[in-house]
Design a protein around this nucleic acid. Structure first.
Lengths: 196, 196
DNA sequence: TATAATATTGAATATAAATTCAATGAATTT
DNA sequence: AAATTCATTGAATTTATATTCAATATTATA
């Protein structure tokens, strides 16, 4: 790759990093291209040299967010409850090691909000954690791995709590600066069944 | 009140009702004045005869939402955990009796989203359930009424779950058409301490 | 019925933000 | 160093909506 290509790549990455921070803090609708340009210290017009549109920039971020929030999925588990337990632990570890992941998590949790283009909502819908979790919970309830109740609501509650933690950590960075991974086992009690 | 005043009031209420439904379904940013006008079967221009602006219409709805979601607060309780238990039960009963409350709940949960004017966020901030609950939880943890853990996160999780239920009910009306109030005691386990 | 007040419309205007573009500067290649 | 390609800017354009307004219809009051 030529020097110019490398610099272009770095510049793109700079824009993406600044955009991630702004989108996480203010949401898609309230983050103006001008805000991102200012944060990346360049003119508004130049943004369009690097990205086709605000929507496409956001879409790229959401794609990487979908990957990041699914990363812990590549793991083995004995039973479905252990799967959630392992997922949660890995997620927290991963997020604390790479604070950018925290921002991505916040962004992913905002996608169903107003002002977000339909095309981006579709990207996120493909990796919808809640629906996937609800299926696993429904199947596991028969064996007592999970408590009784509407599987969708249990999954929703579980993921909302994770998002709450992630958002909390994202904007209270001092909580993880010592490298300790926050305690969050209580989240598992939301779904825990009597066999667990 | 004159006939005209009454009709004006009814027309305002019609707009508000249609707007509540649309705001709940699509969010503030994605609901255009034209959408509301169409739903209320009137011209866009006429909307401004009844409401100063889209923002003011929304603000009025949010104000009524703040009242509605706080209504169950007027009650007695023995200890702080019972307070949450009673609140939850009353809320569910109230919401199922008046389905409009469900929409208001959905709207209240969207206010921190992007595209919502600052002035409206401030209205909602005044009745912030999470912060209020966090204080109660923190105080009650000393006596074992609530589980250990970050009080803010516990409160966040508790309220997220309630919002999940409310949203679920709002858009799956058949779940309450038989008049039965849905079972949701598991939400209390999120915050329950060993003394409860 | 005549007059005044209010309701309603559709077209014109305002606004804010994204996007395009022509011109310029800087770097790379020949 | 001349020519070519890419980076950058700031100003002009577009676009999508909210908002205003002059004109008209409807209803209430005298």
């Amino acid at each position: 790759m030529s020097i110019r290509d490398e610099q272009k790549e770095q510049r793109r990455q700079l824009i993406i990093d600044k955009a991630i921070e702004l989108f996480a803090k203010k949401g898609y609708a309230d983050t103006k291209i001008g805000d991102i340009a200012k944060a990346a210290d360049m003119s508004v017009g130049l943004m369009f040299h690097y990205f086709e549109s605000k929507e496409e920039l956001f879409a790229e971020i959401v794609r990487s967010g979908a990957t990041a929030t699914n990363t812990p999925l590549n793991m083995n588990f004995e039973n479905p409850f252990d799967y959630f337990e392992g997922f949660l632990k890995m997620l927290l570890k991963y997020a604390c090691e790479q604070p950018k992941v925290l921002y991505l998590f916040v962004i992913m949790s905002q996608i169903q909000c107003g002002g977000v283009p339909e095309s981006v909502k579709e990207i996120a819908a493909q990796t919808n954690q809640i629906d996937q979790s609800a299926e696993i919970i429904e199947a596991g309830q028969k064996y007592g791995y999970f408590r009784e109740g509407d599987p969708y609501l249990l999954a929703f509650s579980f993921w909302s709590s994770i998002q709450g933690i992630m958002t909390h950590l994202a904007f209270n960075h001092q909580l993880i600066e010592n490298g300790r991974i926050p305690e969050a086992d209580w989240i598992l009690d939301i779904i825990r069944g009597e066999k667990r």
